[in-house]
Amino acid sequence: MAELHADARLVREPFTDVAHQRAAVSLGMWVFIAQEVLFFGVLFVWYGLFRAQHPDVVAAGGRALDVPLATVMTVTLLVSSFTMVLAVRSAMLGARRGLAGWLAATGLLAVAFLAMKAWEYHHHIAAGEVPVVDLHAASSVVEAGRAQFFGLYFVMTGFHALHVVGGVLVIAWRALAAARGRELPRWTAIMGLGLYWHLVDVVWLFVFPALYLAGHA
């Protein structure tokens, strides 16, 4: 790998040099990732408890989901992680065009993921597979069933999708900044963005088998 881009203008207060800033930003990002793990951890505990108590409901729910589509979504996200790595590399080398291009590719893949997600949501809602419980229609005790499973499905994938949306916004902003070329790409920030993007990817890698592959064993 060629030499790291180490222009003094990349360094912000209160850091002394680029290496110092890189160490601090990456530690900060890892701390952020730790809290994200706990944040999503709540959902997985909820999921685990529900699955332990109602394995058949989760299995039936999993069979109602679109596994081929979700597989395509998974591949899309994985490829976007790869393009993000290339974006970070370009930033580190000070290659402004490469950065803009690879960020744009990452952003487009993310948008494709969201489009598939939206189509999937639309499909389930149209089919009446919704989590909302109508207390007035049902009997006084709600049985654990499809509504509960789709509660898990919408909440877990929904929070993940929100993270994707947040990522897309930042990616678009950074890509535009790099394309306009006014400022030098501050690669420590792009590195942080990359770490975030991989986290979003990894979360999906847990959501995917937990929901979609349940009941397919």
């Binding site: 109508d134 207390l135 509504a147």
Partner: peptide
């Protein structure tokens, strides 16, 4: 929204 997570009336788990 009315999704059952914690409220037993909606099929949720208050202990959780």
């Amino acid at each position: 929204v009315g999704i059952g997570i914690f409220d037993p009336a909606y099929g949720g788990d208050p202990l959780l």
